[in-house]
Structure formats: structure tokens, C-alpha cells
Amino acid sequence: MDLFWSSLGPMLLGAVKGTIPLALASFAIGLVLALLVAMLRISRSRIANGVGRFYVSVIRGTPLLVQLFVIFYGLPAVGVKLDPWPSAIIAFSINVGGYAAEVIRAAILSVPQGQWEAGHMIGMSRGQTLLRIILPQAARVSVPPLSNTFISLVKDTSLASLILVTEMFRVAQQVAAFSQEFMLLYLEAALIYWVICLVLSTAQTQLEKRLDRYVAH
């Protein structure tokens, strides 16, 4: 049990300095990407639509681990050598972008057509209507699926240990290799991920409540 407590400090540090910032940064960048891709997907241009569709298809059709390896181990072959951290953030952002784009697109399409028309009626352009009328309503619909995306991302950051990012799971691996207490250390890692996800689920519920203020029940 001593080992549990003595390893808890370094692992939590790994979570605070690795797992959490990695997840937050990737999610933020990923959401921006997703919004752009969602715009491509709902645009009237065939080409834009095709580009968006291709991106989503590639990202969702290939393993995240392979995406990570292509960027970290593959790109140097074409002269692009990135450190572990930037590689991880790029890979995770692009990955989130692919999944969240479909969530955002579906959320935008779920807003009734009459809202676009009312926006146009009061004189707004397509862009203005999207920003001020449609997206705020789509945001409410996207919170549950985007929360799931974020929670998955937090757990997926453990894959970054394989490209040498010092996040929580890499700390667990190092302590486990040193002490040979694999069961204890990996269960401890599992426990920490679980607690983080519980906290996130609670935050999600709160956010949904806040956004529900203007919706009938």
C-alpha cells in the first residue's frame, strides 16, 4: 500500500502536467477545426462538401494510434520532425476535429429551418444567422455528444505515452517497470482516469442545466 501512496503524487502530477493540458489543448483546437469542417459539410459548394466529407472519413476510418504514429514516427521520413508534445496535440486535435465535426453538423441540421428563415426575415445574412441564431441553439444539442468526445479524449491521451509524452499513464508504466507491481500501478491509473471522468460527467450535467434555461420541459 505504501507504493500506492508514494506513486500517487507523481501520477497526479503526470495528470496535471500531461493528461489534462493535452486533453484541453487538443479539444480546444479540435473544436475549432470541427466547426470549420462542419461549415464545409453544410456549405452549398460540392467541392467544399467533398473536402469535409473526405477529412471526416479518413479520421474516423483509421485508428487513433496509427494517426499518432504517422505524425510522430512517419513524418520525419519526409523531413518533418516534431517533438512528442506537438505531435500528440496535432494528432489528437485532428482526431477530435473529425468526430466533433459530425456532431456539430448534426446539431446545426437539427435546428428547425424556420430559424434560418426568421434570421433572414430580420435581415441577417447566412453567416450572421449561423453565428447568432443557429449555433447558440446547436450548442445546446451538442453538449452531450461533445462531452462524450471529450471524455474519450481524456482516456485516449494515454496513447501519447507510446510517443514518449510524459503524461499520467507513462508515469504509471515507469513506476510499474521499476517496482514490478503492475497490477497495483495500472489499477491506480485506471482509478485516476475514472475519477477525472466522473468530475467531467458532473460538469456536463451542470452545463446542460445552464443551457436548458430557455427550453421547455
Binding site: 424556420g114 426568421a118 426575415m121 435581415g123 447558440p136 441553439q137
Partner: peptide, 29 residues
Amino acid sequence: DRSAMVFQHYNLFPHLTVLQNVIEGPVRV
């Protein structure tokens, strides 16, 4: 700019208050 429409199903903006619904066009547009 010259015509305004009242819709069969109202099409109010659900995320805005009554006042915000009314002033959105005159203020923003």
C-alpha cells in the same frame, strides 16, 4: 428591408428573451 413577415409557427428565437427577439434585427442588422 422593406417587408417583414409573421410566420405561421411564430419562429421566435428560443434562446433569446422576448425583448432580445424584438431588437435583434433593428440593433444587429
